[in-house]
Structure formats: C-alpha cells, structure tokens
Simulated scan of single mutants.
Amino acid sequence: MSIFVTREEIEAIDPLLWKVLPLQIRERLPRSLTASPLNTTVLRRAFTMLRPFLERLFQRLGYEEGEPWPQWKLLAAFYLIQEEVGPATLFKVGRQIYATMPWPPSVRSVTDAVMGLDPAFRAAHHDAPDALIGAWRVVEAVPGRMVIESSTLYPCHLEEGTITGVCDGFSNERPRAALLMNRRPKRDGGRVTSFEVVYNPRTDRDRDTPHQTAPTSIDGPCRSQSRESAL
C-alpha cells in the first residue's frame, strides 16, 4: 500500500476535493500521519461567525471529535476553507494560531518566536519527517531581519496569518512580515514559500514579554516584495 493517499480515497471523501488541492501536493498527502486535535479548537476560535459552516466541514471530512486529525484531512479542511470562504478567512485562522496562544517562558522576543516555529510545527505533527510533512527553515537571521522558508503542505495564506500572529505577540519590537517573491511561492505552484520579518532588535534587558493583543497594523495577507535572494 502506498504511503500517500490516493485520488480515489480523496474523491471518496468529497468528489470536488481533488480539484481544490494544488497540483504540487495532490499526490504527496501522507496516509499515516496525524495532527493534534488542538487544530479543531483553533479553527472554532477563528470561526465564531461561521460556526455552522465549520461544523458541516468537520462532518463532511469525517472528523471524530477529540481525536487526532488524519493529517491529510486537516490539510483538506484548510484548502476547502480557502476555496469556499476565501483566502482572507484562511489568513485569519493562521493568525489566530499564534496571536492567542500562551508562549513558553523561554520565548521572549520575535526572534525566539520565529526560531520556535519549526519545533512547534514538528510537535503538532508528532515529529514526522521533513520528507513527508515539510518544515519551517530559518535561512537568514541578523539583528533586525529574519528570513524563514516554509516547505509544509499547508496553504500560503494560512502561513501568512501564522507569521503575522507571531508579530502580533511582540508588538514592542514593531515587527513587520512580508511574503518574498525571490522564488515561486506555494500559491503559484511552488513547493517553498519565503517570508521576511523585519523588526527593531532589543537588548536582553528590554526583551519583550509575549502577550495576547489586538492585531498589529497588518490586517490582511502579508505585503509581497520582489527581491533577489541574498543566499
């Protein structure tokens, strides 16, 4: 049996789902991986105004309450949200993930938080290998600027929201997030999306205490920037 979910299995859940999934991930959905049921809580928090839609979506995908998600079905949920409700809603869901979560005591700056994205992602997916689930990789980190690449199977708009939610928690450093266009992002058929976070670096004495806060000035998908790669 293949380690990836087949087209027949995907269309058995929903005949329209195959067409909704991006070409570059349709045949890369791992069969055996699971994701934390915490994702259900995050979705419900973000969908307070669209709860009936969300509950129908859970039923449509055969989600069992309180159980881990088959990871491919969670991915399908996000792509169906993007298709049927729109990318702005998906951005909101991503932002909710980190803007309202309690941060570990060791995370005291936006640098700590960005560096912690990959460990948090891995923990939520039970340390699945990169080859199956992808990763968040910091490719540049200098005072005041970080570049991080996502090779996960999740939609770009969701991850733009995730990066913005990280920035929300450290507003004292005035972080700003941007989607970089030095390589083709996942939304345009690529397999890796690059993000830049620029901020005002702080000394250890001034390091932020992460907080739940109102959104920063970024209230939609990250602004795109066309830049040559410095790597």
Rank of each mutant, 00 (worst) to 15 (best):
S2Q: 08
I3G: 05
R7H: 10
I10A: 11
I13A: 12
L16Y: 03
V20L: 09
L23V: 09
R28S: 08
L29Y: 01
L29C: 08
S32Q: 11
S36I: 02
L50A: 12
L50E: 10
R60C: 09
L61H: 01
G62P: 11
Y63G: 06
E64R: 13
G66R: 03
A77D: 05
Y79I: 04
Q82N: 08
Q82P: 01
V85E: 11
G86A: 06
T89D: 13
L90E: 01
V93F: 07
G94K: 01
Q96Y: 04
Q96A: 11
P104E: 10
V107I: 15
R108Q: 13
T111I: 14
T111N: 09
D112I: 03
A113R: 00
M115E: 14
A123H: 07
H126P: 03
D127S: 12
V138R: 05
V139R: 10
V139H: 08
E140R: 06
P143G: 08
G144S: 07
I148N: 07
S150W: 02
S150T: 04
S151F: 07
Y154S: 15
H157A: 11
I163V: 14
I163N: 08
V166I: 15
E173Q: 15
R174Y: 04
R174N: 14
A177H: 01
A178D: 05
N182G: 09
R187T: 09
G190N: 10
V192L: 12
Y199W: 15
N200R: 13
P201W: 05
P201E: 06
R202H: 05
D204M: 10
R205C: 05
D206C: 06
P210G: 14
Q212Y: 13
A214Q: 15
P215L: 10
T216W: 12
S224Q: 09
R227M: 15
S229H: 08
S229D: 06
L231Y: 03
